[in-house]
Design a protein around this nucleic acid. Structure first.
Length: 263
DNA sequence: CCGGGCCCCTGGATGC
DNA sequence: TGCATCCAGGGGCCCG
């Protein structure tokens, strides 16, 4: 994408609240492809009459980005193909977002105006694999609230990028109950390590595919077979053999070991 | 400002 | 076999 100029932009006519003014990208040239948390950020240099801008994309649950030839029928915005947005590029290709469930978001804002793109982006916490994600800040942040530790992991403010799968995996690794509301320094340090280790391993395996998620080439992520708790309710804990339990924490399906994860 | 609850959306799974 | 219902989940928004 870097160096490509957007020649045209289309979006499906469905009254989608999650799609913004994608036409603002027209005339812009992609200068980088960045990521913060679960958001993709593509700064666009303006070529008159276009102004500099920033393309912000969130794949939601089922969103898939593809770069296809402009005449590829799979890249057309049709009522049946789930293509929600289509950017025509200057090299004969198109960038399309396919999104069956319409949870994905695409918008174009002024450069750096992340509050206009999504409140969650503007208040995003540190990148989990960066030095900005430090034990002290994490422990202090956890101590400052009485919400469940799983809710804190999911809300993206203490640390960016942890979703439901990796929240459950991290809490199991750190031996902390998902609904724990008081997490002291020692347990916070264990959770900090667990989040980093699990996300690093998942990136190494190119993610977890169990439904919609796939790599840009259509292949599956290989972390699925490494999962210790997510999707394993009713099966034995790999640490102690106790039957893993399903519940709901922070409005999300949750699996934990009732023996080795204590409140 | 906080924490909790509900909503969006649709394919796939489950139930009758 | 076919139809109806349920469920999943990231983030927005509202309410107390």
């Amino acid at each position: 994408m870097t160096g490509r100029t957007v020649l045209a932009a289309e979006r499906d006519p469905y009254p989608a609240r999650r799609l913004g003014e994608v036409h603002r990208a027209v005339g812009g040239t992609v200068t980088a492809v960045d990521r913060r948390g679960k958001f993709l950020l593509l700064p666009l240099a303006g070529t008159a009459p276009a102004h500099p801008s920033e393309l912000v994309i969130h794949l939601g649950m089922s969103g898939i980005l593809r770069i296809l030839d402009a005449d590829d029928p799979d890249g057309q915005v049709t009522s049946t193909g789930h293509v929600r947005v289509r950017f025509t590029l200057d090299d004969g290709k198109v960038l399309v977002l396919r999104d069956a469930r319409r949870f994905g978001r695409v918008t174009v804002v002024d450069p750096g105006d992340h509050a206009a793109a999504a409140p969650a982006l503007a208040s995003l916490g540190p990148e989990p694999l960066s030095d900005e994600f430090d034990v002290d800040g994490f422990a202090n942040g956890l101590a400052a609230s009485r919400a469940s530790v799983k809710a804190r992991l999911l809300d993206q403010k203490l640390v960016a990028g942890v979703g439901n799968i990796y929240a459950d995996e991290s809490l199991w690794r750190a031996r902390i109950h998902p609904d724990a509301r008081r997490v002291g320094r020692e347990r916070a340090a264990r959770l900090h390590t667990a989040v980093r280790d699990i996300l690093a391993a998942a990136v190494e395996r190119e993610g977890t595919s169990f439904r919609d998620y796939q790599l840009v080439n259509g292949q599956s992520g290989r972390y699925l077979t490494e999962l210790d708790v997510y999707g394993r309710a009713g099966q034995p804990c790999r640490r102690c053999g106790t039957t893993l339990r399903a519940s709901v924490v922070a409005q999300r399906g949750t699996t934990h070991c009732p023996r080795c994860q204590r409140r």
